[in-house]
Amino acid sequence: MTTMIADALTSARQRLSRALQDAGRNSDDASLLAVSKTKPAELVREAWQNGQREFGENYVQEALDKQQQLSDLDDIIWHFIGPLQSNKTREVANHFHWVHSVNREKIARRLSDQREDSLGPLQVCLQVNISGESSKSGVSLDELPQLAELVTSLPRLELRGLMAIPAPCDDPQRQREPFAILRGALEQLRSTLPHAQLDTLSMGMSGDLEAAVFEGATMVRLGTAIFGARH
């Protein structure tokens, strides 16, 4: 018996697969991160039952409540993708596998200091304010190399790559421009930090997945396309 979530996941996977094929990339070059913020735990469980393992959350307390309800799913991987305040770093450091939204030194240091040794390194992406919007979080391109170098020196963090949320745009060609800039920034970091495992470009959402995949996305964040519109 198929369900709405099962059908939506199938469609999302097919869409990602087509985008990778059109971009001349391998079918496993990018993965699907299901953005489950504001959605109940039972929908996350349903997505898990249909093979989805990685989920993105924006709100700490909401995510902790869901994690408790889904504690029997021991292979689920939780990504924190929202703005991160200093007073929430301890919970995020110890209840998530990934953080995509590290954007300043203070947050990075707190995550490393507060992460329990037994959990292993926290996987980190630096959020870049790629469109220069004052309303968006993120480190500037000018400040990025310094922050990246700091994160690679912190003992309980592992720098994996970059994340961005560009300004909305309906033109598929123009959508690619900020993603190309982010890809270039990651390539630059690889040349200056050769020992870091810089393999992740977290970019692309329901409205611009194809543009992101064409510019090298390795993780696309889909919420509406899987769970429906947020209330």
Rank of each mutant, 00 (worst) to 15 (best):
A108G: 04
H100S: 00
A185T: 03
S206G: 00
H100P: 07
D75F: 11
F55P: 12
N26A: 13
N94H: 12
R25I: 02
A23E: 10
D208V: 12
H100W: 12
L186C: 01
R183V: 01
P178H: 14
V99H: 07
H231L: 04
Q49K: 15
L159N: 08
I165Y: 14
Q21L: 13
I77L: 09
G120Y: 02
T200E: 05
F55K: 11
A225M: 08
P166W: 14
T89G: 03
V124T: 04
V128N: 08
G161F: 10
S101E: 01
D28T: 14
S153E: 04
M203S: 01
A8Q: 12
M203I: 02
R110Y: 08
A108D: 00
L16Q: 05
I5S: 05
G207W: 15
A229T: 12
H100N: 03
H97I: 03
D113Y: 10
I226L: 02
L222Q: 09
E42R: 15
V99P: 10
N94L: 11
L111C: 05
A63K: 15
V220K: 06
W78S: 05
R221F: 07
R156S: 03
L193C: 01
G228P: 08
R183Q: 07
I5N: 08
S131M: 05
Q61D: 07
A8S: 15
E46D: 13
H95S: 07
H79T: 05
M163C: 04
R174G: 00
E187S: 09
R25F: 02
L186Q: 02
Q175A: 03
S112P: 06
Q52M: 06
T89P: 14
S17E: 03
N26W: 13
A23M: 07
S86D: 02
Q14R: 12
T38H: 15
L189G: 00
L43H: 14
E42T: 15
Q68W: 10
Q52H: 12
L147Q: 05
N87E: 00
V99Q: 02
R174P: 00
I77F: 06
V220S: 03
A34F: 13
P121N: 07
S17A: 10
A12R: 12
D117H: 14
D65H: 14
T38Y: 15
G216T: 03
A196W: 13
Q114P: 04
Q123P: 09
R176A: 02
W98G: 02
T224L: 01
L119H: 08
G204I: 10
T3L: 11
A229C: 07
R115I: 01
A185D: 01
S17Q: 12
R110V: 02
G161R: 08
L84C: 03
Q68C: 05
P194T: 00
L182S: 04
K88N: 01
A41V: 11
P168H: 08
L84H: 08
H97A: 07
F214I: 02
S36L: 09
T218G: 01
R115G: 01
A217R: 10
P178Y: 11
A225Q: 11
S134Y: 09
R90Y: 07
F55I: 04
R160G: 03
R104C: 00
P40S: 06
H95W: 04
M4A: 11
S135G: 04
N94Q: 08
F80H: 14
S86R: 15
D28I: 11
Q85V: 10
W98A: 00
L73R: 15
A19W: 06
G207H: 15
